[in-house]
Amino acid sequence: MNAPLDLQRARFNMIEQQIRPWEVLDLEVLALLERVKREDFVPAAHRALAFVDMEIPLASPSEEAMRRGQCMLAPKVEARLLQDLAPQAHETVLEIGAGSGYMAALLASRAQRVFTLEIDPALAQLARDNLQRAGIRNAEVRQADGSKGMAAHGPFDVILLSGSVHEVPQALLDQLKVGGRLAAIVGDEPVMRATFVRRTGEATFATTQPWDTVAPRLANFAQPSRFHF
């Protein structure tokens, strides 16, 4: 009988103790975190961790996805990315790294349409199932290599990389509309920065790096050489 109340309390605590202190103060974003049920996007084995300040594995340790480090980002990181990107109701969004589909659900609740790319077939299906169960109709999951983007459906108003990269590929920047913006977590451990790029013209971009965090790598993005001469 207490389960719904316990979930409600845990969600409240997540918002008040993790997310607000991380300067997520947009009332629409906070209301969205109440409405989109994060626990419904967490694998059953980790459901108890749905509101904990940590990354949540999306596969068991023996599975290929887990070996790649695929996980849900910490709630405060998801919320801050959503707030700072500020997708609008008329916009089309491309997400790289669907994971469980939770970030796509948040984006779809703000934007007109979301395409989310997932390289792992099992995770692509998981995201598809979760979004369908949640009644999200304007987010489409595609199994694809996100490092290439999806030029055929671009340009996009918003591009979000739901994980970290050493650097943002020019191929993705080229898929932004003029005035569009991209967010990614860029760098190498232990120093990574939330990086926001706005396309200001056909060949010009403005970049800001307002906060630091660390996140697992997205698959198939170029890595720096480990050899030094």
Rank of each mutant, 00 (worst) to 15 (best):
N2T: 11
N2W: 11
A3T: 13
L5I: 12
L5F: 10
L7T: 11
A10N: 15
R11P: 07
F12K: 13
E16H: 09
Q18E: 08
V29K: 08
A31C: 01
L32H: 04
E34T: 03
E34V: 02
E39G: 05
D40I: 00
D40A: 11
D40H: 13
D40P: 01
F41I: 08
P43T: 13
A44G: 09
A44D: 14
H46T: 05
R47T: 07
V52D: 08
V52S: 09
M54P: 00
M54V: 14
P57T: 03
A59E: 10
A59H: 08
S60G: 12
S60A: 13
P61D: 08
P61F: 08
E63V: 02
A65H: 14
R67Q: 10
R68Y: 10
L73N: 09
R80Q: 14
L81E: 06
D84A: 02
L85A: 10
L85T: 14
A86D: 15
E91K: 05
T92M: 05
I96Q: 12
I96V: 15
G97A: 09
G97P: 06
A98I: 00
G99C: 03
S100M: 05
M103N: 14
A105R: 03
L106N: 02
R113C: 00
T116Y: 12
I119A: 10
L123Y: 11
A124R: 00
L126M: 15
L126Y: 09
N130H: 13
Q132V: 03
I136D: 06
I136H: 03
V141Y: 12
R142S: 10
R142K: 15
Q143L: 15
D145V: 12
S147Y: 06
G149H: 12
F156E: 11
I159A: 00
L161P: 13
S162R: 01
S164V: 12
H166M: 00
V168E: 01
P169S: 06
Q170T: 02
L176F: 06
L176C: 04
K177D: 07
V178C: 09
G179L: 13
R181Y: 03
L182M: 12
V186N: 02
G187N: 00
D188K: 08
E189N: 07
M192Q: 15
A194D: 01
F196K: 03
F196N: 01
V197K: 02
R199V: 01
T200I: 13
G201I: 00
T204Q: 15
F205E: 09
P210G: 02
P210Q: 00
W211C: 04
T213E: 00
P216T: 02
L218R: 02
L218F: 05
F221E: 07
Q223M: 14
P224S: 13
R226G: 05
R226V: 11
